[in-house]
Amino acid sequence: MTTDRSATAAGTSRDWRTFEPVPLTPILAGALEAFYEHGYHGTTVRDIARRVGVTVPALYYHHPSKEALFVTLLLLGTDDVADRAEAAVADADDAVQALSNLTEVVVLHMTTRHKLAALDLEARYLGQESRARYAAPRRRIDALVDRVVADGVESGQFHPTDVHEAARALLGMWQSIARWFRDDGTLSGEEIAARYVPLSLATVGHGG
């Protein structure tokens, strides 16, 4: 396996399975609820200010625009899951364990922090500069998935038709969880992660 464990060794010191509450200011917490309930276009700065109990000028003092608020929240979630994903892969001894860990950590993010994760579905509305900022942590995750699948092919553990297509399929499958997961659902995040690990391994042709 060609995954460079030393390159991400610093990440192994963190507990990538434990998702602490994200520290949000009252304004960010109010904005997250508004974006989750109404989407990016359906949310107004006035609505966020009303939820928080501040004036619109006071809100603008801390965040210059609705887009700035949205990007701040988007990056809080994506930067963190990118760090955790790298730690999870560094914690594995082979490609099968790497993909299992990677699936687990992304699914836990999608469920434990599903309101933050759901913002990804609205990222297409961002301006060019904001999209570029968001693209950086996304590229880290995309590249990591590609690398893990390629490692599995090299080691003979995975047999996908195409590495990049399999990686895209995995990302799409994981990200779709944010569309349907609810806190009051019948399955916990851990249970969903346990179900998605064999699905991910099947997607890359392992064990079939």
Results as ranks from 00 to 15, higher is better:
146 D>K: 05
180 W>G: 05
78 T>W: 06
100 S>A: 15
50 R>L: 00
162 D>S: 15
64 P>S: 14
146 D>E: 14
205 G>V: 14
112 T>H: 12
13 S>Y: 03
145 V>E: 04
58 A>V: 02
27 I>L: 09
121 L>M: 13
175 Q>F: 12
179 R>W: 02
124 R>E: 12
200 S>G: 15
132 A>T: 10
79 D>S: 10
168 R>A: 02
124 R>I: 06
91 D>P: 00
147 R>V: 00
71 V>L: 14
44 T>W: 04
42 G>C: 08
110 M>V: 09
95 A>C: 06
67 E>F: 12
14 R>E: 14
90 A>R: 02
17 R>V: 10
165 E>G: 03
19 F>G: 05
155 S>K: 01
94 D>V: 03
57 P>A: 09
32 L>R: 13
184 D>G: 04
13 S>L: 12
89 V>I: 06
77 G>P: 04
91 D>Q: 07
42 G>L: 11
140 R>V: 01
45 V>Q: 04
80 D>H: 04
51 R>D: 10
86 E>P: 02
180 W>C: 09
113 R>P: 00
83 D>M: 08
186 T>W: 14
82 A>I: 09
53 G>C: 14
38 H>C: 08
179 R>C: 01
179 R>D: 02
123 A>I: 08
112 T>S: 13
124 R>P: 01
172 G>A: 14
76 L>F: 05
193 A>Y: 00
177 I>W: 09
150 A>G: 06
158 F>G: 06
29 A>M: 03
104 E>H: 07
39 G>N: 10
187 L>E: 14
47 D>T: 13
170 L>H: 08
18 T>Y: 09
17 R>D: 10
63 H>F: 15
91 D>S: 14
96 V>T: 15
21 P>Y: 07
4 D>K: 08
155 S>F: 05
149 V>D: 06
109 H>A: 07
174 W>E: 00
71 V>M: 06
5 R>H: 13
108 L>W: 03
121 L>P: 01
29 A>H: 04
139 R>Y: 04
66 K>I: 12
91 D>K: 00
145 V>L: 09
87 A>P: 07
131 R>V: 09
132 A>Y: 02
112 T>N: 15
107 V>D: 02
109 H>Q: 12
53 G>A: 12
60 Y>A: 03
174 W>A: 04
